[in-house]
Design a protein around this nucleic acid. Structure first.
Length: 459
DNA sequence: AATAAGATGAACAACGTT
DNA sequence: AACGTTGTTCATCTTATT
């Protein structure tokens, strides 16, 4: 076998396994690849299979047409908010959001989800809801409720594909800088109610100085940042700190413009904070934990670089909790949660801090260290429910789901954020989009969600 | 052998100017 | 409308160090 046909065959296997991951039969997946070619987007292949299933009457109703969208405009302004911006600005925001919610795909190549500016989703704490009634398609309704998360900045077309596989619900894009001192631009697709949200108390500090008071003393006046950029998995080395120190020490007092520019650029790029005279350093894991909304020492006991990786890949607890807060009055006696790609348990921590009892949590996570973190937390917080760990998402078969549902009566919430590494801008090597090696695990989410839905509807 | 440090741009949105 | 400028980003891989 020559190299070219070997690569060809490898690529075919890869696409095939993605389609099988999505819950399709190997045979129909193969037919779709043969009919559409291997260059066709996976979404198209899935469409093809779905179409042929419809013809045969075997469609699992993965994608029913969305129901008639009602008017989403019966907006009502909540009174409170002294922070309320001018009325016209609020109206502008509402109008822009409405446009995004109603936007129709123009053509296959133009299917792009627009990002809202400001990135405040349906609203953030301290501001009134922008939309009070949003109408979801019938097939998107719970049970169970679901909540999916990923990075906002992706290659073009990714979010419209994600949306397409999740009942055409438009993502709610939110930047966590409205809830804490660090930016975190993320998209959330969910079928949760949006009225009656509340944030965790105490509210996290909104500025760097309040969040990290010790930096105040050393912060130069010409560094005007009040918010940190996105907290990621990599940090700058001590060498960069040294370079900055050296550059600043050449001048006493106000440094020249070119030095300022150099330093500020590095500070923004690497999220440095001022911890000493002329000393800009990366955040500690402890500080990351705090900024991400986790309890102190949540990831203690693991190597530093590992802690950076785990924390950088996590939910922002307060943002997620703000969205999940509506569940509190719906499930006063607690909930059963299916947590995909759990990581260090951002969802679990958020629910716990909201005071929602965790009855059964099925956590799917392949990283041993991540799961160890969640297990530790589970015991430290004296959880009364059951924590069930599944290592491989491929082991979540219809049979396994049926077993779990039979044992405790079904899931109330399916939550998770799938791997972003093939989507994230920081990736120079393999930013391959949704079909990338890890990010294609996204397709496991709708597969499993639809399994849970269909089995719970049988009951 | 395990761990940390260093080197490695591009894609995309937003915004201003021509 | 077209174009240039500015800014941000849940990272990977190789090499050095312990």
């Amino acid at each position: 076998m020559n190299m070219e046909s070997k690569n060809f065959s490898l690529e075919k296997d890869r696409i095939l396994s993605i389609l099988i991951d999505m819950g399709y039969q190997a045979e129909e997946a193969m037919r779709a690849i043969n009919a559409n070619g291997m260059d066709a987007p996976v979404a198209d292949l899935a469409d093809f299979i779905c179409a042929s299933q419809v013809e045969k009457g075997t469609c699992l109703s993965l994608r029913e047409p969305p129901c008639q969208k009602g008017e989403c405009s019966s907006s009502q302004q909540l009174t409170n908010s002294h922070l309320l911006k001018s009325k016209t600005e609020l109206e502008t925001r509402k109008r822009k959001l409405q446009q995004i919610l109603e936007q129709k795909p123009v053509g296959r190549d133009k299917e792009v989800c627009r990002l809202p500016n400001p990135m405040i989703g349906f609203g953030v704490p301290g501001e009134p809801l922008l939309i009070v009634n949003r109408v979801l398609p019938n097939n998107a309704m719970g049970p169970p409720y679901f909540y999916y998360e990923n990075v906002a900045f992706t290659p073009k077309g990714v979010w419209s594909t994600i949306s397409k596989f999740l009942f055409d619900i438009k993502p709610e894009f939110v930047d966590s800088k409205y809830l804490c001192a660090a930016a975190r631009k993320r998209g959330y697709v969910h079928n949760l109610p949006i009225q009656g949200r509340f944030q965790l108390l105490p509210p996290p500090p909104l500025t760097i100085h309040e969040a990290l008071p010790l930096t105040k003393k050393w912060w130069p006046s010409w560094d005007t940042r009040t918010k940190l950029n996105c907290l990621v998995t990599c940090v700058a080395s001590a060498k960069l700190t040294e370079r900055i120190k050296k550059a600043l020490e050449k001048s006493d007092g106000e440094p020249p413009a070119n030095v300022k520019k150099f330093v500020l650029e590095k500070c923004k790029k690497w999220n440095l904070i001022w911890v000493g005279k002329n000393k800009a350093a990366p955040l500690d894991p402890d500080e990351l934990e705090k900024l991400m909304g986790f309890p102190r020492n949540h990831t203690r006991g693991f190597r530093t670089t590992e802690r950076y990786t785990m924390l950088g890949n996590s939910f922002h607890v307060d943002t997620v909790a703000f969205h999940l807060s509506v569940l509190k009055e719906l499930f006063p006696s607690g909930i059963n949660v299916l947590s995909l790609f759990s990581g260090i348990g951002g969802a679990e921590v958020a629910l716990h801090r909201l005071g929602i009892p965790l009855k059964n949590v099925v956590s799917i996570e392949k990283s041993k260290t991540c799961h160890a973190v969640v297990r530790c937390w589970w015991e430290e917080t004296n959880q009364q429910g059951n924590l069930i760990h599944i290592v491989d998402v491929n082991d979540v078969t219809p049979g396994r789901i049926a077993e779990l549902i039979a044992s405790f009566g079904g899931f109330d919430l399916v939550i998770g954020g799938s791997p972003c590494n093939n989507l994230a801008g920081g990736n120079r090597v393999s930013r391959d989009g949704l079909e990338g090696k890890e990010s294609s695990l996204f397709f496991q989410y709708p597969r499993i969600l639809n399994l849970v839905k269909s089995m719970m509807n049988l009951k």
